[in-house]
Design a protein around this nucleic acid. Structure first.
Length: 385
DNA sequence: GGAATTTGACCGTTA
DNA sequence: CTAACGGTCAAATTC
């Protein structure tokens, strides 16, 4: 299901023009997602809503997925932990410590890897997921940008860079939460790679800027492949750790050859069960952006994982895309929002997934149908509500 | 010397 | 209408 729904996203028009790309859908952010709805609310999505013209596809299918990033993976992300197990605090957005992992410990371990990670943010995080949980993760799809915020997470740390399954296991084991670990294993895992060497693509930095609301400088990168419209924004903390990555557009080319590619984690094996091998990732101009804020986490947005999503009903998708306000909106939902308890704050950040759409009626991942009746910027929260 | 990065200016959007 | 903000450009600098 998830894969199909993402595939829809992939069908967006492939316009080489970035402007157009940026104009892609304007997604309405679902607060529930970020704040963490009551388990009950999310945990029991309707089996399938007949509401959508294309029942098989969730409206969310309108969301685009970042290059190389599989939506299904996203949905499966660990951040989407089963609410029954982990519930983010509605107020703080952070998870209770008693969750499955020992976040703090993981984080500390992670710190050791920070340096290396800086250049090879190959760290990978994998999350387990449940569709309904999508909202609670750090992944955000907005304005044609999809952002997966894997904020540092401590939550992500268990996934050490370069790491992989083994390290993940180790981390979990250390956390001492066996039960959680078991849960983790039982869930589909997703890894996301980010950054040049990590995601397998080559990037050229074309700008850096200090943005308001974040003490971290934001760097702008373009894919160096000729005519590839893909861009990404990276925010780094003072210590050099990446706090957030946002992808824009999709690669219209195959991933550069592997030698550079993140050999670690994202290996197909890890994703394999969650996502069938994609056949053709590029080619679809993907309107999605993915943001990841992993510290150690790796965000891999490789096309590989991502492609299969393309089968779908293009028409509807386009429809929504049209609404999209002009781009220049890498702006993702709040940088500081919720999850991140503070820059540099290594405390727990909850992964989250936020989806924004411009349509009046949205059917989000949770399977429910939502009608937007207003939008407002709330003081103290950079993100529109 | 070429490629990549840095950095201030410019421009479009938004409030 | 204007100022603020964020994204991009491109010259200068560094590697």
């Amino acid at each position: 299901m998830t894969s199909s729904f993402f595939s829809d996203l992939l069908n967006s028009p492939t316009d080489q023009n970035l402007k157009d790309t940026e104009r892609s859908q304007n997604h309405v952010l679902s607060d529930q997602n970020r704040l963490g709805l009551p388990p009950k609310f999310k945990s029991t999505p309707p089996p399938s809503l007949p509401l959508s013209p294309t029942p098989l596809f969730s409206p969310s299918s309108y969301f685009s997925i970042p290059p190389g990033f599989s939506l299904s993976e996203l949905l499966d992300s660990p951040v989407l932990l089963n609410s029954s197990h982990i519930l983010p605090s509605p107020t703080t957005g952070s998870f209770a410590n008693n969750q499955g992992f020992n976040w703090k410990n993981n984080y500390e371990e992670k710190q050791e890897n920070v340096k290396a990670e800086e250049e090879t943010i190959s760290s990978s995080f994998s999350f387990q997921a449940q569709p309904a949980g999508f909202q609670s993760s750090n992944a955000i799809v907005q304005n044609g940008w999809s952002m997966v915020k894997a904020e540092n997470s401590s939550s992500m740390q268990s996934f050490t860079p370069e790491s992989n399954s083994t390290s993940e296991q180790n981390n979990y084991n250390k956390s001492g939460s066996q039960s959680n670990y078991n849960n983790y294993q039982s869930q589909p895992q997703v890894q996301i790679l980010s950054r040049r060497s990590d995601d397998g693509y080559n990037w050229r930095k074309y700008g850096q800027k200090q943005v308001k609301g974040s003490e971290n400088p934001r760097s702008y990168y373009k894919c160096t492949y000729p005519n590839c419209p893909t861009k990404k924004k990276v925010e780094r903390g003072l210590d050099g750790q990446i706090t957030e990555i946002v992808y824009k557009g999709s690669h219209n080319h195959p991933k550069p050859v592997a030698n550079k590619r993140n050999t670690n984690s994202m290996s197909s094996s890890s994703l394999s069960h969650a996502n069938p091998p994609p056949s053709n990732h590029f080619g679809n101009e993907i309107q999605m952006d993915l943001v990841a804020t992993p510290e150690n986490s790796s965000i891999s947005i490789g096309d590989d994982e991502f492609e299969q999503t393309s089968h779908k009903s293009g028409g509807d998708h386009d429809q929504y895309c049209e609404d999209e306000p002009d781009a220049k909106k890498w702006r993702i939902e709040g940088e500081n929002e919720g999850i991140s308890l503070g820059v540099g704050n290594r405390t727990v950040r909850e992964p989250r997934v936020v989806v924004q759409t411009t349509s009046d009626i949205d059917i989000l991942d949770d399977g429910y149908r939502w009608r937007k009746y207003g939008q407002k910027v709330v003081k103290g929260n950079p993100n529109p509500r």
